[in-house]
Amino acid sequence: MGNEGFYQEFEVFSQRTDTSPLQYQFSLLAPNRELALVMAQENFMRREAVADIWVVKRSDIRKLTPEEKQSLQRLDNKEYRTTKGYGYLKKKWRHYEQEMLDEKEILSWGGVKKGE
């Protein structure tokens, strides 16, 4: 066994701000997750803002094998899943003198109220 027990592999993830997505940083060796956590920030984020840090033991991660990565392939025939398959509505609505509620319009609805 020797010192292998001291050198456990941890993967480090971090968030730059409270609203940003979790981002993969790098891996480090530490004997346990508490020490992995106290090493993480200074090893990989010495010069940048951090809002949160996750450390995950590598052996707890199930990754795709190179063979399994083949399962990621798919045909480019799924317009029905995307707005691309419904583009004809724009013309239809124009007929009724209405604007199309596209992605840009819909995602703007969560914004500030008028007059604010």
């Binding site: 001291f6 050198y7 480090l28 060796l29 530490a30 020490l35 106290v38 090493m39 920030q41 200074e42 090893n43 010495r46």
Partner: peptide, 8 residues
């Protein structure tokens, strides 16, 4: 005692 700690 190890490299990661040195940096921290």
């Amino acid at each position: 005692p190890h490299i990661e700690e040195d940096v921290a």
